[in-house]
């Protein structure tokens, strides 16, 4: 730094890129490391999914970097291409004999995550907009009370909610699985409100002066401007709903509404001190996160690229 202070303007112009290069190299090394840390466990999921599922093999070759006796057998099990009752014998005692109706569960996961995303995003955005834009009595108090919804331990909520869903006769229906998240989530409202607050009001006010209705302003001006955050929220909600486990496990265990995460249960530990069917579980995990990864590849670019606010600046 001392040398820098002695140099004149022209010298700095020459030095600047060089200093930046060093910084850049360090940054990229750090980023490379982070990417490795992020991706390696995924590789391990895949590697285990492709490994011979027998525990003998799995544990005796625990540190092999490549799949041991590589096989697609686990994926065939997950996709229901193998009748599980045929694989039960003494040589495969650790293999799950549960059936996986993969395509039904996939469809169910899409229905549940889709409905939750639609309802929650729409109704939460409306509420968030009201909290950010309209003035009405008790506004901030209501908002804060909503926020407290985040602070109630889930375990306290799900038992009464479960009993309610039962009383409504919705156990084993999509409506029952979707209900608690369909109308709102404190998270979604909080999220959208923070973005609406940052949004410049000029366009909305102009539209109001032109005689647009409040809902029109919300729907035609504010929502399009919030495309980016909305897509982000929608994606996050979808993935959150997709990965939900305990609630759909309790409410939607029936075959007809069972979602993928619940179906993976057949690969978990069968006995008190037992180990899960690792290879099957990892194959199931791989298959179940593929749709969300595809979704992210498809929408991800648009999510982040559309948060440019080109509309109002």
């Amino acid at each position: 730094m001392a040398t820098l202070s002695r140099t004149n303007g022209t010298a700095t112009e020459i030095r600047e890129p060089k200093r930046l290069n060093v910084a850049r190299i360090i940054t990229w090394i750090v980023v490379g490391f982070m990417v490795f840390i992020t991706l390696f466990p995924f590789y391990w999921v895949l590697r285990t999914a492709l490994t011979d599922p027998d525990f003998g093999t799995l544990f005796a070759h625990a540190s092999d970097l490549l799949p041991t006796n590589a096989t697609l057998f686990n994926f065939e099990r997950v996709l229901g291409m193998i009748d599980p009752s045929t694989i039960v014998g003494q040589e495969s005692a650790n293999l799950s004999a549960g059936t996986i109706n993969f395509w039904v569960y996939l469809r169910n996961s899409f229905i549940v995550a889709g409905l939750v995303t639609f309802g929650q995003t729409l109704f939460s955005s409306m509420a968030a907009y009201a909290f950010a834009r309209f003035k009405f009595p008790l506004r901030d108090q209501i908002f804060f009370v909503y926020l407290t919804g985040l602070m109630i331990p889930g375990i306290v909520l799900f038992i009464p909610n479960f009993v309610l869903i039962k009383q409504l006769g919705l156990i084993g229906t999509f409506a029952g699985i979707v209900a608690p998240g369909f109308l709102m989530s404190p998270f979604a409202i909080f999220f959208m409100r923070q973005f609406f607050i940052s949004l410049n009001k000029d366009l909305e006010e102009a539209a109001m002066l032109d005689g647009a209705t409040a809902f029109g302003v919300f729907w035609r001006i504010a929502i399009p401007l919030m495309r980016g955050p909305l897509l982000t929220l929608g994606l996050l909600t979808f993935i959150g709903a997709w990965n939900e486990y305990l609630w759909p496990f309790l409410v939607g265990r029936d075959e007809s509404v069972r979602v993928l995460t619940v179906a993976l249960n057949v690969f978990k530990s069968q006995t008190p001190q037992g180990a899960p069917d690792w290879a099957g579980l990892m194959a199931g995990t791989t298959v179940s996160i593929v749709p969300t990864i595809l979704l992210f590849i498809f929408f991800g670019r648009r999510v982040v690229d559309s948060i440019q606010f080109s509309g109002f600046k």
């Binding site: 009201a130 003035k135 009370v145 404190p186």
Partner: peptide, 12 residues
């Protein structure tokens, strides 16, 4: 304001 927060209020 109340109209906009009504659905979420029911859920809450």
């Amino acid at each position: 304001g109340y109209l906009f927060i009504l659905p979420s209020m029911i859920g809450f």
